[in-house]
Structure formats: structure tokens, C-alpha cells
Design a protein around this nucleic acid. Structure first.
Length: 278
DNA sequence: GTTGAGCGTT
């Protein structure tokens, strides 16, 4: 099946927007969410039964109805499609909006090629924003790179962009993260991670990411193996946590009926928790 | 002169 565009709208009678499918004819939920933030699925009115039908969604992938996407107008589903819910999403957007004055912190850069220099790093990251520090960690004797380093931006926007994607640097994929080891005059570490309880065994990291991305940028999803009925979701922004913990009812009453935030804590506590339960 | 998950000599 070739790539097609399907018509998607917020409501049945509204001006639809065309959204591209993948090469195999499926549509990624993330593609829909890029245009309709918070979207968790699609529905359409069956030409035959005149009833609304849900589009099959498996692990973030929307599958075409039996006779293909056709000329139907697909309507966006939001978690627990009601007004209160939309207000909550707006509130989360508000959380994201007022991060302009957030302080930046050093980011660890993992997976660097051995040959990459400080200048290489600076050149690469300067495309995201003003860089105020780069470091490559080297062996004290030989001067050889240890394959990781640090970078710091002046603007928080640049930092957030950088931690939410992978980076091709000198031919290798590298990851940028908030360092685990706290060092330097950073703000007191506030939690960016939530503990998600009552998980079911069929829930995937994609499922959790798709659900929680409506509240903020998700940088990591961890599901222990073997199955232990919980997961961790990490956000780029710690303010999301404050929002989520003050709106527990949102999670319990919407979308993932099986997911709820049980508690939030700092990194170390989380770590202890992970291992002591094991 | 090697390596490839991790966590920062000053």
C-alpha cells in the first residue's frame, strides 16, 4: 500500500486536516498527536451503519478499516472525551509554557566516538542554541577520550530539545541525559520521574509514552522485566510532576483505566525502591 | 595502537 493522506478533524463538522500515512498504509498515533496534541485515537462514522467506529490502535499504530482509509473524515479521540479533560490538558500546556526562566544544567553526552573533540561537540550542539560549556572526559595519562562528555546550554529550550532526541555525532548515535551524579552548582534535584502502578502485562513502553506525552515531553519509559506490574516514566521537565501529582484523579479517571500514579520521589529513592523490591 | 555501558581529576 502506498502512502496516502487521510482527513482528520477535531469534530465531524469541522475543517479536516490531511495527515500522511506510513508506507505500509498505517498511521502513527504520534503523527496525529503532532497536529492534535493529546490525541489518543481516531474514530469515524461508518457509511454503512451510520454509527461511529473506532480505528484499531496497536502499540501506537493506527490501522486502516477493512476497506482502506477512503474519504472518511476521522475524528480525534481524546482521553475520556469530556470538557473537564480538555481543561486538564490546557493546564498541562500552561505548565509547559512557563518554563522560560528555568535554569539549565549540565547534560551528559553518552556514546561519543573516541575521536570526537571538544570543538566537534561545540560545533554540533551550537545548532541547538548557545553553548556555554563542553567537556570530553579523557584518560589522565593517555589523553584518550572515554567516549562521553558534558554540554551545557544557556537556554532551557535548547536543553529540552537536546534531551528529547538522539544525536548523530561523527557517525555514532549518542544520547544526552541529565546526569545521575549530581555535581556542580545546579538547582536542587527535583523529581522528573513518576512511578506508575497497577500496570497490566500487555502495556508496552510505547503505550505509556503515548499516554503520558500529553502532559509533557517524555524522555524515558522503564518497564522492569520480568513483569512486575509497575513502570517508571521520566519527563524532560520536573514541573510536569508537580502537575501530575496534584491531578491524580485525571490519570485514574481517564484513558488508561489501569494506570495510576502511586507516588513520586527523587532519583535515589526510586533507585532504592527498584532494587529493594527485586 | 584494544573498548561501547555508563556518570564529571581540576
Amino acid at each position: 500500500m502506498a502512502e496516502v493522506y487521510i482527513r482528520v478533524a477535531e469534530e465531524e463538522n469541522e475543517e479536516p486536516m490531511e495527515i500522511p500515512s506510513e508506507d505500509d498504509g498505517t498511521i502513527l498515533l504520534s503523527t496525529v498527536a503532532a497536529q492534535f496534541p493529546g490525541a489518543c485515537g481516531l474514530r469515524f462514522r461508518s457509511p454503512v451503519s451510520q454509527c461511529m467506529r473506532g480505528v484499531r490502535l496497536v502499540e501506537g499504530i493506527l490501522h486502516a478499516p477493512e476497506n482502506g482509509w477512503g474519504n472518511n473524515v476521522y475524528v480525534v479521540n481524546y482521553p475520556k472525551d469530556n470538557k473537564r479533560k480538555m481543561d486538564e490538558i490546557d493546564a498541562s500546556s500552561a505548565v509547559k509554557m512557563k518554563r522560560g526562566d528555568m535554569k539549565t544544567s549540565d547534560l551528559i553526552v553518552l556514546g561519543l566516538p573516541w575521536k570526537t573533540s571538544e570543538q566537534d561537540l561545540k560545533d554540533y550542539f551550537s545548532t541547538f542554541g548557545e553553548v556555554i560549556m563542553v567537556q570530553i572526559k579523557r584518560d589522565a595519562k593517555t589523553g584518550n577520550s572515554k567516549g562521553f562528555g558534558f554540554v551545557r546550554f544557556t537556554e532551557y529550550d535548547a536543553q529540552e530539545k537536546v534531551v528529547t532526541q538522539r544525536h548523530m555525532i561523527d557517525g555514532r548515535w549518542c544520547d544526552c541525559k541529565l546526569p545521575n551524579s549530581k555535581q556542580g552548582p545546579d538547582e536542587p534535584l527535583r523529581s522528573r520521574k513518576v512511578f506508575v502502578g497497577r500496570c497490566t502485562e500487555d502495556m508496552t513502553t510505547d503505550d505509556l509514552r503515548q499516554f503520558f506525552m500529553q502532559y509533557g515531553d517524555v524522555t524515558d519509559v522503564f518497564i522492569p522485566k520480568p513483569f512486575r506490574a509497575f513502570a517508571f516514566v521520566t519527563f524532560a521537565d520536573d514541573q510536569v510532576i508537580a502537575f501530575l501529582t496534584s491531578h491524580l484523579f485525571v490519570l485514574i479517571s481517564t484513558g488508561f483505566s489501569n494506570a495510576c500514579i502511586v507516588k513520586c520521589d527523587d532519583h535515589l529513592k526510586m533507585h532504592e525502591c527498584l532494587w529493594c523490591v527485586a
